[in-house]
Amino acid sequence: LELTLRVGDKTWHFKDVDEEFVRHLEELLKRGAHEREIEEIIREWLR
């Protein structure tokens, strides 16, 4: 999967994204996660 995600003024483009990561992001967005929380999840995933 490829994913382009825009949060606030930042845009990330990922290739070979894990479906579990996408589901986790979807859940965060559904519950109205704040920009900082989403950025933290992305940084963790990139490690």
Rank of each mutant, 00 (worst) to 15 (best):
L1V: 06
L1W: 13
L1G: 15
L1F: 15
E2Y: 07
E2T: 06
E2R: 06
L3D: 01
L3R: 08
L3S: 03
L3M: 07
L3A: 05
L3V: 14
L3P: 02
L3F: 06
T4K: 15
T4D: 07
T4V: 15
T4I: 15
T4P: 02
T4C: 15
T4M: 11
T4A: 08
T4E: 14
T4W: 08
L5H: 01
L5K: 01
L5T: 01
L5F: 12
L5G: 00
L5I: 15
L5N: 00
L5Q: 01
L5P: 00
L5A: 01
R6W: 02
R6Y: 03
R6S: 14
R6N: 11
V7P: 00
V7Q: 01
V7T: 03
V7Y: 05
V7H: 02
G8S: 01
G8N: 05
G8T: 00
G8Q: 01
G8H: 02
G8V: 01
D9V: 02
D9W: 01
D9I: 02
D9T: 05
D9R: 03
D9S: 05
K10L: 07
K10H: 13
K10S: 06
K10V: 14
K10D: 04
T11H: 15
T11P: 00
T11W: 07
T11F: 07
T11N: 04
T11K: 03
W12Y: 15
W12S: 00
W12N: 00
W12H: 04
W12R: 00
W12K: 00
W12G: 00
W12P: 00
W12I: 03
H13C: 03
H13M: 04
H13L: 05
H13N: 04
H13E: 04
H13I: 10
F14V: 03
F14Y: 01
F14I: 05
F14L: 15
F14M: 04
K15N: 09
K15Q: 10
K15G: 04
K15V: 10
D16L: 14
D16T: 13
D16E: 11
D16V: 10
D16W: 14
D16Q: 13
D16R: 08
D16I: 10
D16H: 10
D16M: 14
V17A: 12
V17F: 02
D18H: 09
D18R: 03
D18N: 09
D18L: 02
D18S: 13
E19R: 14
E19P: 12
E19G: 12
E19A: 15
E19M: 11
E19C: 10
E19L: 14
E19W: 15
E20D: 13
E20R: 09
E20F: 08
E20K: 14
E20N: 13
F21A: 04
F21P: 00
F21V: 03
F21R: 03
F21E: 02
F21I: 04
F21Y: 02
V22Y: 07
V22C: 02
V22R: 03
V22E: 01
R23H: 12
R23M: 09
R23K: 13
R23S: 07
H24D: 08
H24Q: 11
H24V: 11
H24A: 10
H24P: 01
H24T: 12
H24F: 12
H24M: 13
H24K: 13
H24E: 10
L25V: 09
L25G: 00
L25W: 02
L25C: 08
L25Q: 00
L25P: 00
L25Y: 02
L25M: 09
L25E: 00
E26I: 14
E26G: 11
E26N: 10
E26L: 14
E26R: 12
E27S: 12
E27V: 09
E27N: 13
E27D: 12
E27T: 12
E27A: 12
E27W: 08
E27Y: 10
L28S: 06
L28Q: 08
L28I: 07
L28F: 05
L29C: 03
L29G: 04
L29A: 09
L29M: 15
L29Y: 05
L29R: 03
L29W: 04
L29T: 07
L29N: 04
K30A: 12
K30W: 09
K30T: 11
K30I: 09
K30C: 03
K30P: 01
K30R: 14
R31V: 09
R31C: 04
G32Y: 04
G32H: 07
G32T: 04
G32A: 06
G32F: 05
G32L: 04
G32R: 03
A33S: 08
A33M: 11
A33W: 12
A33N: 07
A33Q: 06
A33E: 06
A33G: 07
A33F: 09
H34M: 10
H34C: 03
H34V: 08
H34P: 14
H34W: 06
H34N: 15
H34R: 11
H34G: 13
E35P: 14
E35M: 07
E35I: 13
E35H: 11
E35Y: 10
R36P: 06
R36M: 14
R36T: 13
R36H: 14
R36K: 13
R36E: 14
E37A: 08
E37S: 05
E37W: 07
E37M: 09
E37I: 11
I38S: 01
I38F: 09
I38A: 02
I38G: 01
I38T: 02
I38H: 01
E39D: 10
E39V: 08
E39T: 11
E39S: 07
E39H: 06
E39Y: 07
E39K: 03
E39A: 06
E40H: 12
E40L: 10
E40C: 08
E40P: 03
E40Y: 09
E40A: 13
E40M: 11
I41Y: 15
I41E: 07
I41Q: 08
I41M: 11
I41L: 11
I41S: 08
I41H: 10
I41V: 14
I42W: 09
I42P: 00
I42Y: 07
I42E: 01
I42L: 05
I42R: 00
I42V: 06
R43V: 13
R43N: 15
R43Y: 14
R43D: 14
R43E: 15
R43Q: 14
R43C: 07
E44N: 11
E44K: 09
E44D: 12
E44R: 08
E44V: 05
E44I: 08
E44T: 06
E44Q: 09
E44M: 07
E44A: 11
E44S: 08
W45C: 06
W45T: 06
W45M: 08
W45V: 05
W45E: 04
L46R: 04
L46C: 04
L46A: 07
L46M: 11
L46P: 05
L46E: 10
L46W: 06
R47S: 12
